[in-house]
């Protein structure tokens, strides 16, 4: 109990410290960009880390699940809801629409995640570790090609339904959309922590992560638990896809590749298997990217991000918040 509290305190201290430092370094305007980008990376990184935690699989298709999420949200907005490319200024209507889009996308993506797990990974659960890894790369290509076949390889515009209203806060002008995005991400992260830490299913997940066979002997339904993990991971990626489309306005079938790579880096940075670590890692990656842009070295931002990854792997292989090996999720 005490170690739990110390750990939680340490995490909170790290996060608060990083926020203050980044605010001072970046200034209010870039701080806003950093939080928004970090929210997306963090949501995608959570999926990597959860799947790794429970079945020790680096799910390389996860970046493309995120991409599919962006397309599903675009489809929900344009086809069933029939929205045009103009802001919805009525707050009630906007809330209803956003709820429908976010929840709809998360459910659809969760189901897609479960289907992927059922047909691509479950048959290989007892195969050598390399087999599901290669399968994951195959799934990534399948998802990209399906989306390319349906929506073409051109960039697709996402309806800009969120009014670009700005508030004067902290001496800068802050977009309401940015606040909304960061709040959604925080809400989902807190919900995930509570789910994993406080519920029966969450306990089953943690037990499965620690020792699958022992958990099974204790009556945990392993298949169901793993399916739920995939559902949550893909749903989180779906929510990241929604805000990607809302904020950046244009999506393309291959956007999952780099996003996935960055999110994977974030997950490793924070300590793969550790959910708080993945979120912190996502914000660190975003910080590097925004700082590089601020300083005029944007062409070097990828170099900087992957250099940090290599340094962490060399000096702290279990990641910033990772535990000694053997304990996960």
């Amino acid at each position: 109990m005490r170690t739990d509290r110390t750990r939680a305190l340490r995490t909170v201290a790290i996060v608060a410290g990083l926020l203050v430092v980044s605010f001072v370094i970046l200034g209010v305007q870039q701080f806003q960009n950093f939080l928004t980008l970090g929210a997306i990376y963090a949501l995608v990184a959570l999926g990597y880390t959860m799947v790794y935690g429970i079945i020790e699989l680096i799910n390389f298709a996860h970046g493309d699940v995120f991409m599919v999420g962006a397309f599903v949200s675009m489809w929900i907005m344009t086809v069933p809801l029939g929205l045009a490319d103009r802001p919805i200024n009525d707050p009630i209507q906007l809330t209803v629409v956003l709820l429908a889009v976010v929840i709809g996308t998360m459910v659809v993506m969760g189901l897609i995640g479960v289907i992927i797990e059922r047909f691509a990974y479950r048959p290989l659960r007892h195969a050598p570790r390399l087999a599901p890894l290669i399968t994951a790369i195959g799934v990534s290509f399948i998802l990209q090609n399906i989306i390319q076949a349906i929506f073409s390889s051109s960039p697709i515009a996402v309806p800009q339904i969120f009014p670009r209203v700005k508030l004067d806060l902290l001496g800068g002008s802050i977009g309401v959309l940015n606040i909304f995005m960061v709040l959604v991400a925080l809400l989902l992260m807190v919900a995930l922590q509570l789910f994993v830490g406080r519920t029966r299913l969450g306990r089953a997940m943690r037990a499965t992560a620690q020792d699958r066979e022992a958990a099974e002997l204790m009556g945990v339904d392993i298949n169901q638990t793993i399916a739920i993990t995939f559902f949550i991971a893909a749903a989180l990626a779906g929510s990241a896809g929604v805000i990607q489309g809302l904020y950046f306005g244009s999506i393309q079938f291959n956007l999952g590749f780099f996003a996935g790579l960055f999110a994977f880096t974030a997950a490793v940075l924070g300590g793969i298997g550790n959910t708080t670590g993945a979120a912190v890692g996502g914000f660190i990656i975003a910080f590097i990217a925004v700082l590089a842009a601020q300083l005029g070295y944007s062409r070097w931002s990828e170099v900087a991000i992957f250099t940090v990854l290599i340094l962490v792997l060399v000096f702290r292989p279990s990641g910033l918040l990772g535990q000694a090996l053997g304990e996960r999720a």
Partner: peptide, 14 residues
């Protein structure tokens, strides 16, 4: 900014 960039807002903010 290379073509893999998805977020141009920090560049324009700066």
């Amino acid at each position: 900014a290379p073509k893999s960039t998805t977020d141009y807002t920090p560049l324009f903010t700066a």
